Simulated assay, not measured.
Amino acid sequence: MNTDQFLVKSDLKYIDKASFTWQTPSNIALIKYWGKSNPQIPKNASISFTLNNCHTITTINFERKLHSELVSESHQNIDFDLLFEGKPKEEFKPKIAEFFKRVQEYCPYIFNYKMIINSENSFPHSSGIASSASGLSAIAMCLMSLEKEINVDLSQEFINKKASFLARLGSGSASRSIEGPLVVWGNHPEIEGSSDLFGVQFPHKVNAIFENYQDVILLVDKGEKQVSSTIGHNLMINHPYAENRFTQANENLTKMSKILQHGNIKEFINLVEREALTLHAMMMTSNPYFILMKPNTLEIINKIWEYRQEKNSNICFTLDAGANVHVLFPENEKENVLQFIDSELSIFCQKKQYICDNIGLGAKILTP
């Protein structure tokens, strides 16, 4: 794997101050990744819909350190403050500090700046809507905006690729939040350009039925997950079914590629739901084992199955590593499905809350 391509190889023209604001989305995997090796290398390839309304907005203010504030190379430290939704969030800082530590080889310029990070989500953090994906991809895009300022020869294609590479070092799924509407992360023989190091856009033309696909996220539980994704991934080490699962996921990505191109929506429904349940089955058969679904998660799944059969609908569900349910359906069913969600599914959500979303195109710069 060629990581040298992401090293800074030219002289940098440092600027004294800069500020960048990026809005980057969450994503929802159709073929799941669960299990990794260091440094953040997936055990199988995955593919996701990039979301649109579930996003993080992050501003980083960079101020160049005075010469007297710089220390010898062996004692360099990364200087940053973090505000989340306008308030200091000390419990988030260790994860961000670890991220900066992992990317420092590829972004050595960060030692020369003090950073103030202001971040906010359009959805509840740490509740299984991939807040790490949107949050860390936003930081990665801000870093690449700075790198573009001090190294003007960078192309947008390279910026997106390196941002995905950097984001991956903080959260694997964050590599899939730079672009859209469909992104593959993980080396796969049938996906041209795919890599374990960064996400790539799905390279094939997608059938019209999957354009502007809808995703309504039912907030069954807005609290933090009992088990972090990092711990969950680590439990795949020595898992009795791990190797079969990795093989299955890669085979399922081959199937999903054909489904997306040919538009067989019934096969799409079957494969997406099996992937979601397999993900949670791996959690339930880990040692130690755990269950992230809640009783209302199961109530919603059964209601979706009943509605699909009664109405001959193409509605389906998927799950991330949490209790919340992503309700997926084609745009031509939007009016009917939203009525169904409001009247029959919202009662299983905390305070009847849900988020209406659809597939999006990835990161957007908001800096004036």
Results as ranks from 00 to 15, higher is better:
183 V>A: 07
324 N>L: 08
246 F>C: 06
165 F>G: 13
133 A>F: 00
352 K>Q: 15
99 F>Q: 06
51 L>A: 04
68 S>A: 13
246 F>R: 07
60 I>H: 13
131 S>G: 03
23 Q>F: 00
192 E>V: 13
218 L>I: 05
349 C>R: 00
24 T>Y: 01
229 S>N: 06
342 D>R: 14
135 G>H: 00
24 T>A: 11
94 P>T: 00
85 E>F: 02
19 S>K: 13
354 Y>Q: 04
237 I>Q: 12
162 K>L: 00
77 N>C: 07
189 P>H: 07
233 H>P: 01
69 E>K: 05
356 C>W: 02
196 D>P: 11
284 M>Q: 15
116 I>F: 02
287 N>E: 14
220 V>K: 11
134 S>M: 08
245 R>P: 06
254 T>A: 04
125 H>N: 14
318 T>D: 10
282 M>C: 13
264 N>R: 05
174 A>G: 04
110 I>Y: 13
53 N>W: 08
36 K>G: 10
249 A>D: 01
130 A>L: 07
213 Y>S: 14
257 S>P: 02
281 A>Q: 10
54 C>T: 12
32 K>I: 00
171 S>G: 01
266 K>T: 07
317 F>L: 09
271 L>V: 02
168 R>D: 07
173 S>P: 04
145 S>T: 05
272 V>E: 08
114 K>I: 02
239 H>C: 09
304 I>W: 03
96 I>Q: 01
122 S>E: 07
267 E>P: 03
252 N>F: 01
36 K>M: 03
49 F>Y: 11
169 L>Q: 15
343 S>A: 15
12 L>H: 12
195 S>Q: 03
143 L>R: 04
157 E>A: 10
160 N>E: 06
115 M>F: 03
140 A>F: 01
332 N>Y: 15
103 V>N: 05
351 K>M: 03
337 V>R: 02
321 A>N: 01
5 Q>S: 12
42 P>S: 04
261 Q>W: 00
321 A>Y: 11
307 Y>V: 02
146 L>H: 11
105 E>D: 14
4 D>F: 04
47 I>C: 12
108 P>I: 12
273 E>W: 04
31 I>T: 10
62 F>Q: 05
226 Q>T: 10
131 S>V: 00
155 S>L: 01
166 L>P: 05
166 L>H: 03
194 S>L: 06
137 S>T: 05
235 L>R: 10
203 P>L: 02
114 K>T: 06
162 K>C: 08
345 L>W: 10
169 L>C: 04
45 A>L: 06
338 L>G: 05
98 E>K: 15
251 E>H: 07
336 N>M: 10
21 T>D: 00
52 N>Y: 03
139 I>C: 06
137 S>C: 12
202 F>E: 11
101 K>I: 13
177 S>T: 06
199 G>H: 01
302 N>H: 11
76 Q>S: 13
326 H>L: 14
34 W>Q: 08
365 I>W: 08
180 G>D: 08
135 G>N: 00
367 T>M: 10
179 E>A: 15
29 A>Y: 02
103 V>H: 12
350 Q>F: 03
274 R>P: 09
181 P>E: 14
59 T>C: 10
350 Q>W: 14
284 M>K: 13
13 K>I: 06
168 R>M: 02
10 S>E: 15
66 L>F: 04
267 E>K: 02
333 E>M: 08
9 K>F: 05
286 S>F: 07
139 I>L: 05
210 F>D: 08
161 K>L: 03
227 V>A: 04
102 R>H: 13
93 K>R: 13
2 N>P: 09
150 I>T: 10
278 T>D: 08
